[in-house]
Simulated assay, not measured.
Amino acid sequence: MAKAGTEVELDLEQPSGSKAGRILLFAVPILFTVVLVGALLALSNPTTRNTVLETANKVPVVGSMFPKPTYTPEQQAQKKEEKQVESAEATINELKTQLTKKNTELKTVQQAQVDTQKKVDDLTKKLETAQAKPKDAAAEKEPEKPSDQVKQLAQTYGSMSASKAAPILETLTDAEIAMILNAMNTEQRSSIMQKMAADKAAKVSIMLKNASSPSKLEAAANTARAAADKAAQPAQAASPSGASLNQDQLAQTFSSMEASSASTLLAQMAKTNQTKVLTILKSVDDTTRSNILSQMAGTDSETAASLANKLIGG
């Protein structure tokens, strides 16, 4: 029984000894290597030794078993300088990286500003175009209006009865009649044309239909008046009896008109043909002439004075 107990004890102790043997099996070569390296370092060049020690110190676990490298003051200064150079290079590289990053951000911001300005310019142009369109449309749609002189003539004839206005208008050229009737409203124009001769009314109607603008009608009227005056001068000299008959008709017409209407009408006619106005004033009686000139003096004193001077001088 004692022998059996002894064998058991030996068996219990065997695992512990086997573990220690394994540790020694690995530790002995390591220690041998350390001792060998240390001996080699002791015999080798200091610079090489320091290099080897630096490398060995970086090895995990084993590196702590090696001694630290020793440097001379010159080597320490060189190491310090190298570290400073490395630190400076690292700082420079970092600054370069930051500079590159900032330049990229700056370019992005500048491009964004350019894009924004382009959008602003485009919107400004669109706004200006949109604002200009209503004005252009209004200008296109707004019809051209007759001149103030033609409007006044139209108002004067429009205030007269159609039976009185039609004979006076028939003494004018077709272009002048169309010019005046174009400035009237439809009702006034229709009433007067009903009292005109059929052929005259037909010609004027065609001119009104083909008229593109009041200004062109006025230009045509001025041209027609100049041609009519030029043609009337030799005709009047060769046929005074015909002129006398026309004066009688005009005298009768203006004598039957109100003085205010007659004065306005004659004042407008005087701006284009004073000779005809003087003929009409000479053909009416003194009372009618006085009333017409009196009314004209209140509205257009310059024209009234000019006509009166010519009447006195003539």
Rank of each mutant, 00 (worst) to 15 (best):
Q113S: 02
P214D: 08
V62D: 10
M160L: 10
N182L: 10
D248P: 00
S190P: 11
S301T: 13
M1Y: 15
T91A: 08
M1C: 14
I177W: 12
K96T: 07
S283D: 05
Q152H: 11
M207R: 12
L24T: 05
T156C: 13
P214F: 04
N273I: 02
T299N: 12
V61L: 00
Q113Y: 04
E54M: 03
A56C: 04
N246M: 15
A308T: 15
L281H: 00
V284E: 02
T299H: 08
S294P: 07
T272D: 07
T108Q: 10
S87M: 13
G63K: 00
L24V: 03
N273V: 04
M269V: 10
D122V: 02
E74T: 01
A77L: 02
T279G: 08
A228V: 03
Q78M: 03
K118V: 01
A211D: 12
I92V: 08
M269Y: 10
S44D: 12
D286H: 01
S212M: 09
Q14R: 14
D122N: 03
M207S: 06
A297N: 09
T70G: 00
I292P: 07
N246K: 12
T104S: 09
S241M: 01
Q155I: 09
V52N: 03
E258M: 11
Q113R: 04
Q14M: 15
K3M: 12
S190I: 13
E144K: 07
T299A: 10
A137G: 09
T264V: 14
L250R: 14
M193D: 11
M1L: 14
T104G: 07
L43D: 09
T303V: 08
D286A: 01
L53D: 04
V35W: 14
K195D: 15
E105F: 05
R189N: 13
M65T: 00
I177L: 12
K118F: 02
A175Q: 08
A139F: 11
S191W: 14
Q98H: 04
F254W: 05
V114E: 01
M269I: 13
S306A: 14
Q76M: 04
G63H: 00
L217G: 08
N210V: 10
G314F: 01
A77I: 05
S215W: 12
D229Y: 12
V277H: 00
G38Y: 08
A305V: 03
F254V: 05
Q117P: 05
M207T: 09
A175E: 05
A237G: 03
L153V: 14
V8E: 13
I192V: 15
R189G: 12
L245I: 15
K216E: 13
D148Q: 02
A183I: 11
E54N: 06
I206H: 11
A130V: 02
A165L: 10
K80C: 09
